[in-house]
Design a protein around this nucleic acid. Structure first.
Lengths: 236, 236
DNA sequence: TCTACTCCCGAACAGTGTTCGTATCAAGTA
DNA sequence: TACTTGATACGAACACTGTTCGGGAGTAGA
C-alpha cells in the first residue's frame, strides 16, 4: 500500500524515511517535489496570496483534486514550504567571539528568504513550530548563543523572540510592498509625503509632529538590523 | 448627498467629523457602530476567522450586501476594528522615572486586547499603519520613551519593533489556542510531552535535546515580558 | 488474460468577498 | 395631498476559495 498524504506528513514529523514512488504515464509526474518547486515559483513571482490550490494545479497542468494525493491540506503545503525554506538556511559553525554577527547573519538569511517569497511569512506564523526543518535552525541558533556565553534560558527565549520578529517584520514589508503595487487608492505614500502628513497632524500629536523625521527615517533594512541588535544587546 | 463608505473612510483618515445619519424603518438600524460592535462580539466568541461578511450580516439580521453601504471592504472593516481596539488603550501621563513600567504596561494592554479578540492581530498586521487611532498609541508611547530620556531616533524605531512584536506574539498565541481547540489531530501536545519529544530527537540536535527544559519552560506571559524587557534593556 | 493496485482527475459542494439592480421608505416640494 | 428626490437596504448573482467523492486510466503481478 502506498503512503497516504497523512502518512507522509507523519513521516516528516517523525523520523521515518521511505523510498520515492515510481513515475507514471504523465509527461512530468506529480510528486511532492514538483508541487513544492512550482509552488515556490508562483510565490516568488506573484506572491503568497496567489498560491491557491487551483493556481498550483493549473501550473502543474492538472486539476485541484490531484494535489490532495500528495498533500494533506493547504496548511500541510504551507508547512512543506516553510520547511523547505528553513532547510536552505546555512548555519555557521559556532564561534564564541563572533556570536553576535553569526546570529545576525542567520536572521538576515531568514529575512532574505522570506522576502524572496513575499507573504510566505504568513504561512510561517501559522505553521506548527515543531517542524523538523525549523527545529534545525533553532538548534543552530541555540548553539551559536550558547557558544557565545548566553545563559540557556535566555538563549531559548531569545530565539523565539528573534524568529518571531523576523517573521513579523518580513510579513509587514511584504504587505507594504503589496499595498504599493496595488496602488488603486492614494493611501500609500512616499517617505516625504509621510513626513508632511505627520507634520500636519492635530495638536494632540505633539511628539509625532515634532519627531516626524525620526519616525519616517531609515530603510526597512535599517529598522531590521536596529531591532535585531537591540535584542542582542540585552543578552549578556 | 449622504456620504459613501469611501467618504467615511477618508473622513476617518483625515480630520473631518460629520453628523450620524438618521435611522430608518428597521428594528435596529444598521450603522457603522452596530457593525463594529457585533463584529467584536463575533470575534470575541468565535475568533477572527469566524468573522465573515455573511456571518456578520446574519448576526445583524440582513444580507451581506447591506454591509457595503457602511463599509468599503472587509479590509476597511478590519481597519475599523483595530482602530477601535487601539482607542481603548489607556495612555498614562509620562513619568520620567517609570518609563519602563509605563511602556510595558501599554504593551500589556495591547496584548490583552489582542488576546481578548483571538486572531484579530492578523488584521492588525495587515492594516495600514497610518490610522489615527494607532497613531494615538504611538504618540503616547513616544511621549513615554522621550520622557524617559531615550533618544528620539531610538525611541521611534523601538516603538515599531515593540508593537510589531506584540502583534506577532498575540497572533502566535491565538493560532496555538485555535490549534488546541481544533484538536482533531494529535499534533498539539502538552508541555511535558513537548519536552519528551525534544529529548527523543536524533543526535543532530544536541543542544535542543540537552536544553529541552529551557526551550519549553515558561508561560506565554513569561516569554512576553521577557522579550519586552529584553528590548527595553537596550534603549539606554 | 485477469486482477489488484496505484495514481489521477472531472465534477460538485460549501464556503468566501463583492457588485448590480431594484425595492422600500422618509423627507422635501408643488 | 400627490409627487419627486435621495438615501437605505437587500436578493441574486459572479468569481473565487479549499476540499471531497466516485470513477477512469494505466502499470504490475499472478
Amino acid at each position: 500500500m502506498s503512503p497516504t498524504p497523512q502518512e507522509r506528513r507523519a513521516a516528516r514529523h517523525g523520523l521515518i524515511g521511505s523510498a520515492p514512488p515510481a513515475r507514471r504515464g504523465r509527461t512530468a509526474p506529480i510528486t511532492v517535489e514538483a508541487i513544492i518547486s512550482t509552488a515556490f515559483g508562483i510565490v516568488e513571482r506573484e506572491g503568497y496570496e496567489a498560491l491557491t490550490m487551483r493556481r498550483l494545479a493549473t501550473a502543474l497542468e492538472t486539476g485541484p483534486s490531484s494535489l490532495y494525493a500528495h498533500v494533506v491540506n493547504k496548511e500541510d503545503l504551507d508547512e512543506l514550504l516553510i520547511g523547505r525554506l528553513c532547510a536552505a538556511i546555512e548555519l555557521p559553525e559556532p564561534h564564541p567571539d563572533r556570536w553576535r554577527e553569526q546570529i545576525a547573519g542567520v536572521c538576515a538569511q531568514l529575512r532574505d528568504q522570506y522576502l524572496r517569497y513575499p507573504g510566505i511569512s504568513q504561512a510561517a506564523l501559522a505553521a506548527a513550530p515543531a517542524n523538523l526543518d525549523t527545529l534545525r535552525v533553532s538548534e543552530g541558533m541555540l548553539a551559536i548563543l550558547l557558544a557565545g556565553g548566553v545563559p540557556p534560558q535566555t538563549a531559548a527565549w531569545a530565539i523565539d523572540a528573534l524568529v518571531l520578529y523576523v517573521n513579523a517584520h518580513t510579513l509587514e514589508v511584504s504587505y507594504a510592498k503589496r499595498r504599493r503595487n496595488h496602488s488603486d487608492d492614494g493611501w500609500v505614500v512616499g517617505r516625504e509625503e509621510m513626513t508632511g502628513r505627520f507634520a500636519a497632524l492635530p495638536d494632540s500629536f505633539p511628539q509625532t509632529k515634532r519627531y516626524a523625521d525620526e519616525l519616517t527615517a531609515g530603510s526597512t533594512e535599517d529598522r531590521f538590523t536596529f531591532t535585531i541588535e537591540l535584542m542582542l544587546n540585552g543578552l549578556l
